[in-house]
Simulated assay, not measured.
Amino acid sequence: MTMPTAPALGWTTVATADGPFTVLYDDADTVHAAGWTESAEYLAGLIAPALRGGQLSRRPAGPVADAVTAYYDGDFAAPSGVAVRQIAGPFIAAAWSALRLVPAGYPVTYGQLAERAGRPAAVRGAAQCCVRNAAALFVPCHRVTRASGGLGGFRYGLDLKRNLLAREEPPPDLED
Rank of each mutant, 00 (worst) to 15 (best):
residue 45 G to A: 03
residue 98 A to L: 13
residue 135 A to N: 14
residue 4 P to E: 08
residue 78 A to F: 05
residue 81 G to V: 07
residue 21 F to A: 10
residue 154 F to V: 00
residue 159 D to R: 14
residue 132 R to S: 08
residue 72 Y to N: 10
residue 120 P to H: 05
residue 68 V to D: 09
residue 45 G to R: 06
residue 62 G to S: 13
residue 32 H to W: 14
residue 56 L to A: 11
residue 142 H to I: 04
residue 86 Q to A: 11
residue 147 A to Q: 08
residue 176 D to M: 05
residue 123 V to L: 03
residue 1 M to V: 08
residue 136 A to E: 08
residue 161 K to R: 15
residue 125 G to V: 05
residue 24 L to S: 04
residue 43 L to S: 02
residue 125 G to F: 05
residue 44 A to G: 03
residue 45 G to C: 06
residue 84 V to C: 10
residue 13 T to I: 00
residue 29 D to L: 03
residue 20 P to L: 06
residue 121 A to R: 11
residue 171 P to N: 00
residue 126 A to D: 01
residue 40 A to E: 02
residue 131 V to R: 12
residue 170 P to A: 11
residue 100 R to K: 04
residue 79 P to F: 03
residue 99 L to I: 01
residue 42 Y to V: 06
residue 104 A to T: 09
residue 8 A to W: 04
residue 146 R to P: 00
residue 8 A to H: 12
residue 44 A to F: 07
residue 132 R to G: 00
residue 76 F to C: 06
residue 16 T to G: 05
residue 17 A to Y: 01
residue 16 T to P: 05
residue 155 R to V: 10
residue 76 F to K: 02
residue 69 T to Y: 04
residue 174 L to I: 07
residue 97 S to H: 06
residue 99 L to P: 11
residue 176 D to S: 02
residue 57 S to Y: 06
residue 16 T to Q: 07
